[in-house]
Design a protein around this nucleic acid. Structure first.
Lengths: 357, 357
DNA sequence: TTGAAAGCGCTAACAC
DNA sequence: GTGTTAGCGCTTTCAA
């Protein structure tokens, strides 16, 4: 068993070369899977590497090859000084970190300021100090124009995760927000709901617009006119959802029988407001969310929502970035599948909703 | 404005040395705040560094100085293939990452297998490949004996975050679980509750035992005998909490008027079970949690719980680790303060609880 | 207080 | 297919 660490008395390419009776260069080629080594030699060297427990020194490799073997995963601190949805963050991280490890890279998590100007400065310092080989931008950074421009200027490869638009610089990974929202709305329609409200997302967030559009498209598809009073502003927050529901549920006979909230957090707010008003969910009111985040199963009743393959998006984005770093030309945009998760917060409409009982 | 990145045509110590009319060595000393440089020289060099936008090359520094300037923050993947409480994870990360940056370090987030043997292997590979200057162990890794032993063997400095016991190898950062749980139980007692149940934590988790002990201590302090049937097993999960509450609430006249759940997630489960049984919280039943995690405010009613200064614990642990790396002798254990957060899930007892109405 | 020399471990560029 | 040479940018060591 080899417990020798890097830097102490660890084996080097020279040690391996000597043992294998080849030159250090050949060892290097084997380690990097570079062409130009006879398969016999390659096998021999690999065996010696195994035996000596040789692990290449990252610092040396990085210094000579001018690659840091690091990528940065950049999040934005949200305005209230906490990051948004921690479950989204950790799941994305797992996808990214895992895929990095598979490829000899490491991921550095960075949290940039909510202030765009400050974030740009932080990103530059990051590029200088850490010198990542590439950057992954989580939303809403993925839609921050000036930052993208700066990365282009610095010639740092980057991939955008769930940006506002698939156009723009750099490849991206997206999910089909619009059809997903449409499917959810159609699901509510198919259960007999006709007065369906929509609690919108944060105006600055990329996902907000397509989710509203999907909602509208579903109504149009079913030949139902949209009701302006049922489309209320929101900001992806619990409090925003609670306020929106308070408004909607005080509409009396015009109140909705179902609410489509554009994310789980605001759906949780709607749920809390319904509880506070002693309105039974889902018998009197159906509520649907979007994201299938951590909290969805911890609410009462558990939330019917749309599941995004967040971890898989992280993996896909990382693969795209590594391809970019290798000088390849990855697809401009990768679309990931979504799935409607039926739980207990939505049920068939019962006549006039809460006014039926 | 300097946009030159590392590795491209960035300024080096030689450039700075030439401009300043000194040797590269002097520049190095200034950069590292090493002694033995006249203050005039130091000022001059600093000025040139500023002017050229010089940023030391991490790889070169790391190669020569045999320090990677990285620390690893290790989490354990929980058994159900997701990490526990994402909010805890992200908050701890922010504390650690922030403090690292302040000190010229970077933090690498690592997620180890739930299987201890596999985790040990991953940790060794990590130590070899990344060669972090130190490791921070999040719970429950901080209580994993074999891993700690391995780190000692590898001579990698480490700090334990919320370990089972303050004894054992390496410094640690802890909160006073016992008095915190005691205070919460006393809070319930002071509101007139006498039949208070305790939903225990995961047996393998360090925090479980002291929290139970705190609960018991409070009862003892008030001269109340503990009731075995009111102390139910749990595992820090939503489902575990729900099962525990189902048991407790089917006890008829012996059912508790208040439940102290050993974390927020199981408290959420208790809340869901109460909702499902149409038991009003807090009027018929009080529920208290522990951790003040992300979900606490998204439940209905919002959870009365104990707040841990998680971010600050991350910062403190990082400072301890950096001290250890510098060869200093940090305190063996740092205790962080906690705080009872009153929200709406607990209220004064009303006669016989749910049987009063 | 400062500097010169050497080399950390690896790989680009080129020669054979 | 393989080896030689040189040097990435920094800091350790030692000398002045």
């Amino acid at each position: 068993m080899n417990l020798r660490r890097q830097g102490r008395n660890a084996a080097t390419v020279h040690d391996v070369a000597r043992e294998a009776g080849v030159s250090p260069m050949t060892v290097s080629r084997v380690v990097n899977n570079a062409p130009g080594v006879a398969s016999v030699t390659r096998a021999l060297v690999k065996q010696v590497i195994e035996r000596l427990g040789f692990v290449p020194n990252r610092a040396a490799r990085s210094l000579r090859a001018r690659r840091s073997l690091w990528i940065a995963l950049a999040f934005q601190r949200s305005l209230d000084e906490t990051r948004d949805d921690p479950a989204y963050v950790t799941e994305l991280q797992e996808g990214v970190i895992g895929r990095c490890l598979e490829n000899g890279y490491h991921a550095a998590v960075e949290v940039l300021s909510a202030d765009q100007g400050e974030a740009a400065i932080q990103l530059r310092e990051l590029a200088q100090q850490l010198a990542p080989d590439g950057v992954l931008l989580a939303p809403p950074l993925s839609a921050a124009g000036p930052l993208l421009a700066q990365l282009e200027e610095l010639r740092v490869p980057f991939v955008r995760i769930s940006p506002a638009s698939e156009d723009g610089p750099g490849p991206c990974v997206v999910i089909d927000d619009l059809p997903a929202a449409q499917q959810m709305t159609e699901y509510l329609l198919s259960m007999g709901h006709r007065r369906i409200a929509c609690v919108q997302g944060h105006p600055a967030h990329a996902a907000s617009a397509p989710r509203l559009q999907g909602y509208l498209a579903a109504l149009t598809g079913w030949g139902i006119a949209s009701t302006p009073s049922l489309i209320v502003p929101g900001d992806f927050s619990f409090d925003g959802g609670k306020r929106a529901a308070a408004h909607l549920l005080s509409l009396g006979a015009d109140a909705p029988t179902a609410i489509f909230a554009c994310n789980d957090e605001s759906a949780a707010g709607c749920l809390a407001e319904a509880h506070a008003r002693r309105i039974q969910v889902p018998t009197e009111l159906s509520i649907a969310g979007f994201d299938d985040t951590y909290v969805a199963t911890m609410l009462y009743p558990p939330l019917t929502t749309i599941r995004q393959p967040i971890r898989e998006m992280g993996q896909a984005a990382t693969s795209q970035l590594l391809a970019l770093i290798e000088g390849l030309q990855p697809p401009q945009s990768i679309r990931m599948p979504y799935r409607l998760v039926e739980r207990q917060s939505a049920a068939p409409a019962t006549g006039q909703g809460r006014h039926a009982s």
